[in-house]
Write a protein that binds this DNA or RNA. Sequence first.
DNA 1: TCTGGGGTCCTAGGACCC
DNA 2: TCTGGGGTCCTAGGACCC
Length: 419
Amino acid sequence: MFGLIDCNNFYASCEAVFNPKLMGQAVVVLSNNDGCVIARSPAAKALGIKMGVPAFQIKNLIDAGRVVALSSNYTLYGDMSARVMKVLASMVDGVEIYSIDEAFFHIPDGVDYTALGRRIAVAVMRSTGIPVSIGIAPTKTLAKVANHIAKKYPGLKRVCVIDNDDKRVRALKLTPIDDVWGIGRRYTAQLRSMGVDGAWAFSQLPRTVVRRRMTVGGERTWSELNGVSCIDLDTGHVDKQQICTSRSFGEMLGKLEQIQAPITTFAARCAEKLRSGRLVAGTVMVFLYSNRFRPELPQVALHRVVALPYASNDTRVIVAAALGALRSIYRSGYQYKKAGVIVGDISTMARRPVNLFAHAPDALDDNLMAAIDAINKRFGKNTVRLTAELVDQKWQPAHHKRSPNYTTDIDDIIEIWCK
DNA sequence: TCTGGGGTCCTAGGACCC
DNA sequence: TCTGGGGTCCTAGGACCC
């Protein structure tokens, strides 16, 4: 059997743990640049605030004090996630961390599934303060279904188990088609137009129809809903194929010199991410977009991939390639709002491909990068960085209401005063 | 005025190989 | 009139996930 643990309203719950005044309040957490809503407390959901709505559309509620809006604090959420996963791993085997707030795990057949689920939920709450829901079923897709139901029906006390066909059918009949894992916006629209509104109706379609319209992925989802497990637990970490760093700018930028600063920073971050995984990349891609939400302005989407002469994770090499690509695609006369750097063709440092015709990287270069990483680890990130990152900071996204890093920065630790 | 970031997988079509 | 078969690699586009 598969278990799926999912943290309830994860980012909003993290904030409430350290700021108990938020408990029971309508709280939303905003995306980078304080752009749109990416997490909502139960009270915020009750106000009808939808996932993904732009912050300016709920400005009235925020200004009236009916909703607390916070900037996202990924340092805090990442650390809280690690704590939740640690508790889980101490209680079950075969944990597959699926996202920052979700993990699949293995449950041996025959145990008391509901009791185990409850124990996990209680332990996580006690150790971290984060409320979780747990779904248990014979396939991953059904565990997802069970998890949704556990969240939706408070009577279940956060645990839903599908362990026979009767429960499976009942669960599918309670599940709208767009709540099914693997069926997104496009397929939902397609299926609805065929008169398929729920998971149950979908599971009753002929396999060949599903295969033809939704290819192998859809067919897998269909089989899993019918109780046939096709997606195994993936406990080994998958090797990354590309690494991306991108942001929307705090304001629109028109000049090449203004855009060089963020591209330098994005490229440097990609290089750091590569080094932290002991990886090297063979290609560097830069993309640059105008503001798609301002259709009255001229629109453009530019990108270019460059191949490096040899696979690298050297900040200077990645940055130089990215800036070269930027210069070659940049066009004046546009207002740009978003850009990013993606490194690809990734391999491990141990198996770094060699190029007979290019000057090979020097061990001294690796040492220099290692020294920079060590300094930044010890004295805080950005202690050492390229000056090119600093020339123009106008691109920096806004995050006006970021909470402190309660669990990772000694200066931010909570103080409690007793009278 | 104001609209996120970071990923994966699959397919079709074209270029090229023998 | 008649115009092969089998394969790889790459890219763009479309779908999905959190």
